[in-house]
Design a protein around this nucleic acid. Structure first.
Length: 570
RNA sequence: CGGGGUGUAGCUCAGUUUGGCAGAGCGCCUGGUUUGGGACCAGGAGGCCGUAGGUUCGAAUCCUAUCACCCCGACCA
């Protein structure tokens, strides 16, 4: 492509809307233009990268036995009502765009396609012999995100690959899931990501097992918890951890309420009371689908709200408002405790709250703290489960290692869905013996446009992008540095043709700009191989070659240049 | 949804407090000098000041409404 004809000019100044370095680079380099909040135009350079990422995904999905199809973006309300998700996605979460058509029917723009594909499979499957099936599509998805962010990273309209597997039983699902898992690893490796697969929470979509594929980047919206000794890695939403255990007092002391004014936070509290922080207890009040729940965790921990929600059967869990806390506890916020709460408050506690002798907790009275509290004597045993947020520094749940934390961008997520959708939509596989069991489903998503954003996020410097060659918009950026010199132009034109004939994708900067501007634009656009030709290189009968990721350039003959390009493409 | 902020030239922003000719830098166009990391000189084009209404002799500026975008929070396959 001749750059003089290319659409997508570069900007010298960073647009004010840029929220991350990579987001700013995408705008400055002419890859994206914003149309409205979270809605972007994919300019020619970006589209080429998206197509390459899509092609890699397409090849690996096909290789793994999935078949490509394409479903409509517009879906009808009735289908979503059958699975009970209409209300959740529109009224409660408000994430789905919906509107009325000419005839007054309510329709939506698909944020995901479980309903549609399950409905289709219901029609297509007549026997257990028709299974398994696995299909995928690469398509624009619509989600009215509450807070679009970071350009393509969290957009309201975006490109997604979604795949769905249909099996006779759990064992079949395991096979399908494993094939997808391996394909996802291959896809990430081919694109060139520095990434990690982690255990994940399956969230509102439902189901049992799930893993996320996380591209490692400090600007990622998710936190990954991983072990420094074994292979354990999980999204912080899901991660388990063990806490350091301490020697307990040998005898129980009498409980008492201690006055300690204005103590904010567990450290000052522990210091004031003369006890270790691990003896303190945080009690947080939540409303779960309207029911009150008090959650206790050890003072040196935080509550993982997702674990609480899962424990309560997928309830909508929210921290209780301060005014309500005052009503319930009779104390200012910060003094809630398990003793003396109203009867309608269900008390649940993290495992590590237990097995402590003479611990502290809030007294439900402003400025008062109960010390030397003991389960069984001062209050009944609450329901125990895992409610704490795993943090760096905690111990690994599987070995003696210490957990570490790192930020990640979720580019892929694979789920074992089970029969939630097939049951709701009656997608069954007659077994020939009179039974009609629902098919067992899996679903597998990849954020295609998010992958492009993650790629830039992970590969850039202060001057611009540094694309991995297999997803770069073009392989080579050819710069004609002296566009007024006919001999130089002729040489560039010839090389441009030669490269294209050899199957090399070239962006040819034939503009009448000064060399400095061309170098800056080349750095910004970030194509992996830069070739420069000028009067100077012509005199030496060679080409100046520079890899975007390297600091130095080299003068090579045309043969050497072609060889180097082939080597890079290999 | 709650709190805050911003809408003025293609981009980044002054000007609004205290009403009085519509501004700067970058970019763009023309001519000239330059020519390997966004060069210099001279000249030029370009804005219904987000939109609608109001106050006023006079509104980018004050008032009201409204729309859009951004940030923080809540929330979020």
């Amino acid at each position: 492509m001749r750059q003089s004809r290319h659409l997508g000019r570069t900007l010298r100044e960073v647009p004010k809307d840029a929220q991350t370095a990579a987001h700013g680079l995408m705008i400055r380099a002419g890859y994206i233009r914003q149309l409205s909040a979270g809605i972007y135009v994919y300019m020619p350079l970006l589209l080429r990268s998206l197509n390459k990422i899509s092609q890699i995904i397409r090849e690996e999905m096909t290789r793994a036995g999935s078949e490509e199809m394409l479903m409509p973006a517009i879906q009808n309300k009735e289908l979503w009502e059958k699975t009970g998700r209409w209300e959740r996605y529109t009224a409660i979460d408000g994430i789905m765009f919906s509107f009325q058509d000419r005839r007054g029917s309510t329709v939506c723009l698909g944020p995901t396609h479980e309903e549609v594909i399950t409905e289709i499979l219901r029609q297509e499957i007549n026997s257990f012999k028709d299974l398994p099936k696995n299909v995928f599509q690469i398509q624009t998805k619509f989600r009215d995100e509450i807070r679009p962010r970071f350009g393509l990273m969290r957009a309201r309209e975006f490109v997604m690959k979604d795949a769905y597997s249909f099996d006779l039983d759990e064992a079949g699902l395991d096979v399908s899931y494993e094939a997808m898992r391996l394909a996802y690893h291959t896809i990430c490796e081919r694109i060139g990501f520095h990434y990690r697969a982690v255990e994940a929470d399956s969230g509102a979509i439902g189901g049992s097992g799930s893993q996320e594929f996380m591209v490692l980047a400090d600007t990622g919206e998710d936190t990954i918890i991983y072990c420094d000794q074994c292979q354990y890695a999980a999204n912080q939403e899901r991660a388990a951890s063990r806490l350091e255990q301490f020697t307990q007092d040998t005898e129980e002391r009498p409980m008492e309420a201690v006055l300690g004014e204005g103590l904010i936070g567990v450290e000052p509290l522990a210091e004031f009371l003369g006890i270790p922080v691990w003896k303190t207890t945080k009690t947080l009040l939540f409303e779960a689908d309207g029911n009150l729940v008090a959650v206790m965790v050890r003072g040196d921990c935080d509550v993982n709200e997702i674990k609480v929600a899962n424990f309560l059967g997928g309830a909508d869990v929210k921290l209780t408002a301060p005014e309500r806390i005052k009503e319930l506890t009779g104390a200012a916020v910060g003094y809630a405790g398990p003793i003396g709460l109203p009867d309608n408050v269900r008390i649940i506690a993290d495992f590590d709250v237990d097995h402590r002798v003479n611990f502290e907790c809030g007294a439900n009275q402003t400025n008062y703290h109960n010390i030397n509290v003991n389960f069984g004597r001062d209050l009944p045993l609450p329901e125990f489960s895992d409610f704490k947020l795993a943090q760096a520094g905690h111990q690994c749940p599987h070995c003696d290692g210490t957990l570490q934390a790192q930020r990640g961008i979720e580019v892929g997520h694979i789920f074992k869905l089970g029969t939630k959708y097939s049951e709701a939509l009656k997608c069954v596989a007659p077994d020939g013996q009179g039974q009609q069991p629902p098919v067992v489903m899996g679903c597998y998503g990849i954020g295609v446009s998010r992958m492009a954003a993650a790629c830039v996020e992970q590969n850039h410097d202060d001057r611009g992008m540094i694309w991995p060659i297999h997803v770069a918009p073009y392989h080579v950026h050819l710069l004609c540095l002296t566009p007024k010199d006919e001999a130089v132009v002729a040489r560039c034109d010839a090389l441009y043709q030669t490269l294209q004939d050899a199957g090399v994708e070239v962006l040819y900067d034939d503009r009448t700009a000064r060399p400095g501007e061309k170098f800056s634009d080349a750095d910004l656009i970030g194509l992996p191989i830069r070739l420069a030709i000028s009067k100077r290189t012509l005199e030496q009968d060679c080409i100046e070659v520079k890899l975007r990721k390297d600091a130095d350039n080299q003068m090579l003959s045309q043969e050497q240049t072609l060889a180097l390009i082939q080597e890079q493409l290999g």
